[in-house]
Amino acid sequence: MINFQYARPNEVADAVRQIAADPRARFIAGGTNLLDLMKSDVEQPSRLIDISRLPLKSVEETPDGGLRIGALVPNTDLAYHPLVESRYPLLASAIMAGASQQLRNMASTGGNLMQRTRCYYFYDIATPCNKREPGSGCSAIEGLNRMHAILGTSESCIAVYPSDMSIALAALEATVRVMGPGGERTMAFADFHRLPGDTPERDNNLEPNEIITAIELPPQGFAKNHSYLKIRDRLSYAFALVSVAAALEMDGEAVKEARLALGGVAHKPWRVEAAEAALAGQPANEASFAKAADIVLSGAKGFEHNAFKIDLARRAIIRTLTQAANGTPQSQSSKKIR
């Protein structure tokens, strides 16, 4: 870990001023990812701006019947919040599928969006990585890429965004509120994270001088028909090989509206609206779900070690949609897949 300055602003505006003044400064909230990266010398900030005490910790209902989640609400508090448990259980479930309880106690909502990839090469400063050191090359494309992306990859990066919570937020069509020197703006969740393209060093569209202040959820929470299924190499405390967030509004035996987002397969939560549209009005059965899966995965491309993810994702999509349609969401403590 390198030498850094430490500052603790009391107001959001002050935090924004401080980050704008130092391009090598970073915000720190829970620290669960940033400190990990700093200890590996992957992140070398000149200054840490401690935002953990900013007044962004409340969960409030919005006038339109949605929910506003302060960027600093810890993951566990969010998952256990009565309004989230009752109205957005998909989000609660996805949060509980990630990391460990200790980490969830520390990690913040906004920080989760900023989580960086677990790509081995990104973490090892002795190997080339375009995300860490633009132009140095991607070691994963022809290297160890079992955990890597099958969708939206580029010739410069095949890293995966590792969050669970964000997969649910993508499915729920959350909005991200951010504050910068020029004031506040909102971003649709789908616009927040980026594909690697030829700038894999950029994970998302947050400007360097902006701070996430809140996540807003629309009123529709799909509390009745939803499921989050995470598939990984051990039964807990591991990153996803593939995860699926599915949310349905049912009309009898048919799907009225569908939401589907995938984790572990791309540089951002992977959501294909065409697949969701294809489900609308269709009977909730395996054939419809398989068709949606095929749309989602059209264009998927496997590498030497991760091609299995394509078929796995297809099966997982069908299964998760089935769980959602049946109203039997995957439990995160029982490891038997429902």
């Binding site: 430490y6 603790r8 720190i28 620290g31 669960t32 400190l35 990990d36 840490l48 401690d50 953990s52 566990t76 309880q101 200790q102 980490l103 106690n105 520390m106």
Partner: peptide, 13 residues
Amino acid sequence: GRRVNSCLTLAVM
């Protein structure tokens, strides 16, 4: 009162 990983906690925070 909450369990955390002290290795990823900066003491000053």
